[in-house]
């Protein structure tokens, strides 16, 4: 054919519709913001019930994770995420969804080889590199702490 792969690559760019960035951003901002608002309301409520601020924070995270797990199992989280994108991916609820969804999907492959082995299929790299980043930052912090007080 007369079109070579390099020219073709330019044609592909032109023919592929771009993601509606502004619309996506607005969805992400408002849905993500709402999830954070729910989190803040929960934290205030736990604090008002007499939990310490640290405990209230932990309880808030646990509650959001539980809500996300239930919504994932009902198939609702995915429906919201299809519109909200990063708005549902970034908060802790997105992490819960990433763990629960493969657990449901691979249940048919057994509790050990399915659920157990594949539960962290998506979230695994986040844990690995999250921990690595915290170790690296820990070392840096150890070294610079005497100078920054």
């Amino acid at each position: 054919m007369k079109t070579d792969p390099k020219e073709y690559s330019a044609l592909v760019q032109k023919a592929s519709p771009p993601s509606p960035v502004w619309k996506d951003c607005l969805w992400a901002f408002f849905v993500g913001g709402c999830i954070c608002l729910v989190g803040e309301a929960l934290r205030q409520a736990y604090a008002a019930w007499g939990f310490t601020l640290t405990d209230a924070g932990a309880m808030t995270s646990a509650t959001l994770v539980a809500i996300s797990a239930v919504l994932t199992a009902l198939g609702w989280y995915q429906k919201l995420a299809a519109k909200a994108g990063a708005g549902t991916l970034v908060p802790i609820t997105g992490f819960a969804n990433a763990v629960v969804s493969p657990a449901i999907e691979f249940r048919c492959e057994g509790l050990v080889t399915g659920v157990g082995a594949k539960m962290f299929l998506i979230a695994g790299p986040v844990i690995v590199y999250g921990m690595l980043a915290s170790v690296v930052w820990g070392v840096i912090w150890y070294l610079i702490r005497p100078f920054v007080g």
Binding site: T72, Q78, A81, S101, I104
Partner: peptide, 9 residues
């Protein structure tokens, strides 16, 4: 990805 995973197409 799994069906219930909240990805954007």
């Amino acid at each position: 990805t799994p069906l219930e995973y909240g990805g954007k197409r």
